[in-house]
């Protein structure tokens, strides 16, 4: 694992893994969404709106997964001081924020026909909204640290502290009364019929591969920007010395 913290080794791996993850993710996601939209039957209670499940659940999973990736990368950065771990955390922030926003918006669209309201201030929805604000804060903080030359430990600590919200989101429907349904999938058990569960798992896999590809692309962009800056600085020093 530590071997991949070498930027050169990482870049040679990422050069083929980025398009591979993006293409396989796009194909699987497109297939799963077409399956969910065209082939899955309407639900007895939710009717046609059950199809929103195939976008809403993967985006919720990736919204929480994105922050978990930030927290794990932040620990790796704080413990082993790998700069690549800080880059990985930064790279996961924008995609995580985008999927959290998609989750909130598709949930709101689903809530209107299912609950009769676009929004309620219950535990699940509010903690997910807090996650969106945490992402926005993390992105702003990481950009400010890079621009003003602050310590990269500051966003790493913020990433770790913000991880407190992840178990709160997960348990919110158990701890508090909510319009949101309780967990349908737990370890080794599912309350979802296989007719819905199989395309849902394919959608989660497809979106996850896509997320992995986007994070790798963001990491490559951040590394290239750092290398660009370093080369410009080196050339400026060479010009001064000459």
């Amino acid at each position: 694992m530590h071997g991949f913290a070498n930027p050169r080794r990482f870049l040679s791996l990422a050069s083929w893994l980025t398009p591979a993850l993006l293409v396989s993710g796009l194909v699987l996601t497109a297939g799963a969404l077409a399956w969910g939209l065209l082939a899955v039957p309407p639900d007895r209670l939710m009717g046609e709106t059950v199809r929103i499940l195939f976008i809403h659940v993967p985006s919720a999973w990736l919204g929480m997964g994105g922050w978990t990736a930030i927290a794990v990368s932040s620990i790796a950065f704080l413990v082993w001081k790998h700069p690549l771990a800080a880059t990985a955390a930064r790279a996961a922030a924008v995609p995580g924020m985008a999927f959290t926003a998609i989750c909130l918006l598709t949930g709101s669209i689903w809530g209107r026909p299912a609950w009769g309201t676009w929004w309620v201030w219950d535990g699940r929805l509010t903690s997910m909204l807090v996650l969106l604000f945490l992402y926005a804060g993390y992105v702003a903080l990481a950009q400010a640290v890079e621009r003003d030359g602050g310590s990269p430990r500051i966003p790493a600590i913020f990433g770790l502290v913000g991880a407190v919200n992840i178990p709160i989101i997960n348990r919110s429907v158990v701890w508090w009364n909510s319009l949101h349904q309780p967990p349908s999938i737990t370890i080794g058990k599912s309350a979802i019929d296989p007719e819905f569960l199989i395309p849902l798992l394919v959608a989660v896999l497809g979106f996850s591969l896509l997320f992995g590809g986007v994070v790798l692309a963001r990491m490559r962009a951040l590394i290239a920007e750092m290398q660009h800056e370093a080369r410009l600085r080196r050339k400026a020093w060479e010009a001064i010395d000459a």
Binding site: L22, L26, L33, I52, V214
Partner: peptide
């Protein structure tokens, strides 16, 4: 509602993928 959710999710995902690439 289904079409609105799919349009939003697909457009957001494609924008994110295209922008990052």
């Amino acid at each position: 509602f289904v079409i609105a959710a799919y349009a939003l999710g697909i457009a957001g995902t494609l924008l994110l993928t295209g922008w990052s690439w």
